[in-house]
Write a protein that binds this DNA or RNA. Sequence first.
RNA 1: GGGCGUGUAGCUCAGCGGUAGAGCGCCGCCCUUACAAGGCGGAUGUCGGCGGUUCGAAACCGUCCACGCCCA
Length: 876
Amino acid sequence: MTDNTQRPASGQNSTPELPTQYTPAEVEGQLYERWVERGYFEADAKSDKPAYTIVIPPPNVTGSLHLGHAFQHTLMDALTRRKRMQGYESLWLPGMDHAGIATQNKVEQQLAEEGKSRHDIGREAFVERVWQWKEEYGGRILGQMRRLGDGVDWSRERFTMDEGLSNAVQTIFKKLYDDGLIYRAERIINWCPRCLTAISDIEVDYQDDDGELVSLKYGEGEDTVVVATTRAETMLGDTAVAVHPDDERYRHLVGRRIKLPLTDRTIPVVADSHVDPAFGTGAVKVTPAHDPNDFAIGQRHNLESITVMDERGIITVHGPFQGLDRFEARSAIVGALREQGRIVAEKRPYVHSVGHCSRCSTTIEPRLSLQWWVKVEPLARAAGDAVRDGRVTIHPKEMEKRYFDWVDNMHDWCISRQLWWGHRIPVWYGPDGQQVCVGPDEKPPAGEGWTQDSDVLDTWFSSGLWPFSTLGWPDRTADLEKFYPTDVLLTGHDIIFFWVARMMMFGLYAMDGVVPFHTIALTGLVRDEFGKKMSKSNPNSVDPLDWMDAYGSDAVRFTLATGANPGADVPIGEDWVKASRNFANKIWNATRFALMNGASVEGPLPEPEKLSATDRWILSRLNRVVAEVDAYYEDYQFAKLSDALYHFAWDEVFDWYVELSKTTFLKGGEGAQVSGRVLGEVLDVMLRLLHPVIPFVTETLWTTLTGKESVVVADWPKDSGFRDPAAEAEIGEVQRVVTEVRRFRSDQGLQPGQRVPARLTLDGTLLAPHEDAIRQLLRLQPEGEGFNATATLPVAGAVVALDLSGTIDVAAERKRLAKDLAVAEKEKADTTRKLGNEAFLAKAPEPVVAKIRTRLATAEADIARITAQIAALPEA
RNA sequence: GGGCGUGUAGCUCAGCGGUAGAGCGCCGCCCUUACAAGGCGGAUGUCGGCGGUUCGAAACCGUCCACGCCCA
């Protein structure tokens, strides 16, 4: 096809070639590559313009674009594109995180297919393999972001494992270590027996599983106690039974030792006020090595911790259960206890909440383990305070509570992972138990016996540095000076704890208390058209690329933007994407029509005195919409702004302005020229307003309309302040008449295109100047010889008399009028009742009362008019 | 168990103190020379239930019911 974005620069009067249908798939890719080639998205740190910065919440290197990304990217793109147009040095910085567990899993799978494990090839070779994997398969999402139209600065693309970012990781680790905010401790952590690593609290997904609750009798003779558990296998590691100190039932047992079944051990009964006497029997078994609460009890009572499983969840305790995995052991142990008559109650299924690894869904095993931790209290407090004192705003505000609940109750963060892919912990251990943390510029201790910690850091440890590590920190780079703090962090509300809180903590800490962004804009989740959650495991999951190919990226983007109510979930369905595609096509054709009728952006807009009321009306509306859209942008109201533009474009510009102007264009001459200039202005502004949301179609149309280089670098429209309420009222009357008569025509069964002779009596009304347009819109012919008004429609002070050449459908007309009369009478009754209410008159504000009075007057006039019409109707 | 949120047209959602709205879907007529991915017209709601506050409640308060989410 011809390249329809090109237009001869001198060809002001040549009719640009636009096909009758917009075919996005053919042009979007080229447009995007051109934008990138021209460097529109590359930000200049030396620019004098004020900076506007958004760093992308780094997607996972193993991932691909899903609708959630498409959604958030659309919004970030809209924000940065608008600011660029407003004259900011706009930077949207892309990149990915290295996704420690996920990526390592991918490569381990590859190795497994070759019959190898990572241990077979060794750490160094393994890490090399991961880099190879990344080169080959990683970052699929980056290409998909181009397809979506993301206006990111590719020259600044970052990856958390890059040298610079790794340097940042090591720097902050050392700083935290030196400040005593990183420490090593043995605690219960969330252990994934499949990934073979610790994971943090937020990487655990809880779900209700069918389990079993068995009540076990511990002890012998009189010294017995019944405890309930869902994890019978851990009883091998029990080192106490705990009861509440005030619990009379067990007071006699406290301090005594009882026999632990299936073992040759005895365990103490301890009193601990954290035990809930109302739950179960009020006595609980205590396994400090396999349960966080039990660990806490163990600490308080100096209990021994006995680990009964290995890292894969296999029982290691000598005896009949050794070698069984934890679930096999559970039933074996319950069986053995049953034989001994120690099972006093069983509840099966017992639905309870069980933690699963968010990466592989394996049931988490709480495990006692030596790990590295971040002491979060001071960091989290600072992160909370930044929001409390208003330096950072959360949109929508209702989400603040969730943020505070998190940062104010945050547990220390386990940051070490038993993986090979990631930032290795920069701590070295000496032959005599020394421990040295090494900064990026320092050499590790030399000599015999020094070894580096074998663990790597949680991926989020590096992602948390993203807003400044990507800009060059710890160096005071020009980028950092120019673009930090960033402006907005936009992400899903489900991710507050992952990105938001961590970036806040690290940003404030590393950047001397300067917040990483002043605004946190939180979105909901994308759902299917029935409001059901979309997930990879659900069949309702949609690949946004399929929709982009079928309907264009603009259509997907517009649909998502239109659904973006602050903080609320966004449902999306194919029908809605189609509707957005239709909108794009509508804009396409309207612009095409405009260009065929001499729409122009040349020269200044004529003075208001030279404009028709129709022109002044649309310009007045246009400027109101500019102001409205700006206000919505400032409040992150993407649904509202998209909706406002949709309705302005379609319901006002296309359905009325263009239609009303057709007669002017047909007549030609100066009037047509003026309207062409106005139409050009309206489209020019409208396309620029729409561009951040639907960049592709607007680019093609705007460059064709204006002959300029690109709307990407066009100026954002400004409200000129022009308002013309009189013209707005006048066109409102025109719309009323046209709609009324159309209704009549439709009720009378007239075909839409059928010409009808009519006499218009418009003298003394606002409609007088619009007779031609009204006749055009209503397909009314001039009254000819022998005109015979068979229907007379009084509306808006005017009279439209029609000659339907013969009898009209009196029944239809009577029905229509009866309906109108009923509406008017109800209105009269409602308003009369209000005005008859003393309390209302006394207490309601004057404008409200006045409004009701006007409504009553209108209703009465309508009733009189309609009644007269009905009376004038011939007998059926 | 604790906290938060939501129940408005067939579906998905706006509206959050003064005449119940949108998109999609539905019904009827129409290829009116920009667009059938379109035009014109139309129908559709005890605004979850009950109680209260108010001159006035979809909106505010209480309560119940039903869903959803987060945390434990």
